[in-house]
Design a protein around this nucleic acid. Structure first.
Lengths: 337, 337
DNA sequence: ATAGGTTGTCGAAGCGCTTCGATGCGGATT
DNA sequence: AATCCGCATCGAAGCGCTTCGACAACCTAT
């Protein structure tokens, strides 16, 4: 293993000079810099991460806490995680992957050990048990998702309230009077996941304002669960002509069922999805949808965190504006029979 | 921040004693140990990761390189990643998330800087460009997936050759004579991804042995691509009665199309999927499938790597035996019209 | 009673890096 | 010619931990 000292000797300068060449924190003559850089290349030197962390008390690592559950909104999570890793690298940081498993202890461990300089939390619940710790340790952090109380926290999220409103508006504008929402699995609501409740709030508020009827039903993923849920909805509100789906793994089953029952999309029923663009475009019907901008969320979160770590940056809540893309699954409401 | 020295002072012992209490590398009297442990608790001491890494030249971190592509076999990747993170924690390791983006350089960076003690590579190609480096740096590592040349490497994977064989056998045993394989996207084959080619090999070899006809067609995910692919298959081999799908995002579209065309599963067509159990069970037809044991693969990889890091462990190729679960999507071949 | 072996603890020497103050030097300012 | 300043470099002091050899203290076998 090559050390700083060896590079210094090889280049005929002192260790500190090499260090300054590397960090750029003091001016170095062009001549010396080149000699040092050459030695670094020739010896294949790589600074030792541990030593660096110890001496500078900065690890250049960002911790990312992802939910343990592998069953829900997986693609979104994955996309965010990858976006985080990629943007972090662009800022010179590496990413440490923490699963929800350890829970709040992970926060303590990471903050205490100086393993990471800051952390990004995903899948934040409205009243998340990690938040008190986060506030207490003054560990620089950014949440992806919105808790109930955002004071003293930096958060990044899609504006799900506006998302809900947007979906209702779109359907209402086309004359739909009876709208049903097929939501995430019941467990998601029971955990008081921010995005689910906020979407619902936006949906309800806007539909009240616009005077349309709204029915919300949670739904597990998969075909059978969807079949039951759809039957219940149509039983309860036979005039339902607009459907809003916020559950990736319910999308395709829903379309299959509608087809099977002879309900044409969008002639008989309009469907709006809240899902990644890819899902909306790969479905058996091109779905009108509000995209979940996973990449952008990940990138924003990193940008915010890095800003904090560099002393700039503040406790801000960034809500990304939703965008509804009209594709083939929505159209005018059918005239009442 | 609390340091070892402070704990030592608080407990009235020397720093080295505290260190030995923590590591258990020398015997300590019960009395002293308790005093030290009490001080640790009272002061809320957490060892500093950087200092530890520097002094011991072990970071207790495992690097996990995941493919950058977010479009393919995502759930499997995610499940593996989470399994890796979870098992690693159980062994006292944290996980550093690297994306494929950096390519081989990531290997150099991690190995050189001592950031991680070892690494796990996913999405290994048959002739992966990271392998030469891996062999050169003698960085302890484990691959998930099989390259062409496994000499000097430790690999963990599902036995995809056996998987392919198993699928063919199952269908052949039910009398199917014309079998079509709907594979991963063409890009996957072009990259020479090990698992895809091996599966194909298993499928072909076994079908030759059993004297059944086999047609293989790569297929992008999504409904449209599937429609085209299916049409081509049925055009070319109208007698096809057995389908084998190895592409998660083609499963549901396939079922929808078959339904739409009035082909009953399993009466007219039998379908075997190679996919995670969850996908097979959530589909609109309970799919007979060979599971991709993502969790197990992740766990095995970590176990192997940890064994290597502790000096035990060898360069072994672990192939997990495939298991075919019969569900509702396969049955006897229809008698020829 | 004495040599020999355990057991439990301590002190000190690093691990490889960053960073601060000091220093030498040439050029600009009086 | 004396003074001041900025630039480029160096030396040394740590950062918080692990680990090795040393050493008392005690126990056992002779």
């Amino acid at each position: 293993m090559v050390t700083l000292a060896e590079v210094a000797q090889h280049a005929g300068v002192s260790a500190s000079t090499v260090s300054y060449v590397l960090s750029g924190k003091r001016s170095i003559s062009a001549n010396t810099r080149q000699r040092v850089e050459r030695s670094i290349r020739e010896l294949g030197y790589h600074p030792n991460a541990g030593a660096r962390a110890l001496a500078s008390s900065k690890s250049n690592i960002i911790a990312l806490m992802v939910p343990l559950r592998t069953d829900m909104y997986v693609p979104v999570m994955m996309e965010i995680a990858i976006a985080v890793a990629t943007s972090a690298r662009a800022h010179g940081y590496d990413v440490l992957l923490l699963t929800g498993e350890e829970g709040p202890d992970a926060v303590r461990r990471v903050a205490g050990s100086g393993l990471a300089d800051g952390m990004i939390l995903m899948d934040v619940e409205l009243d998340d048990e990690r938040l008190p710790l986060l506030r207490a340790t003054d560990q620089p952090s950014v949440l992806i998702g919105l808790p109930a109380d955002t004071s003293g926290l930096t958060c990044v999220d899609l504006d799900f309230r506006a998302t809900g409103a947007l979906c209702v508006e779109h359907l209402a504008k086309q004359g739909h009077q009876d709208i049903a929402v097929i939501g995430e699995a019941p467990a998601v609501y029971e955990r008081h996941t921010g995005f689910a409740e906020r979407t619902l709030d936006g949906l309800r508020t806007r539909s009240r304002e616009l005077g349309v009827r709204l029915l919300h039903r949670p739904c597990e993923g998969g075909y059978d669960a969807m079949a039951v849920t759809l039957a219940r909805i149509l039983d309860e509100r036979p005039d339902t002509s607009g459907l809003i789906v916020q559950n990736e793994s319910a999308v395709e089953p829903l379309l299959a069922l509608l087809r099977q029952q002879g309900r044409a999309v969008p002639e008989d029923v309009s469907v709006v999805a809240i899902c990644p663009d890819q899902v909306a475009m790969q479905a058996s019907v091109r779905l009108t949808s509000v995209a979940i901008p996973a990449q952008e969320m990940g990138r924003h979160a990193v940008d915010q965190l890095v800003a904090k770590l560099e002393g700039r940056g503040s406790d801000e809540v960034v809500l990304l504006a939703p965008e509804l893309t009209v594709r083939g699954s929505t159209g005018p409401a059918p005239s009442r029979s």
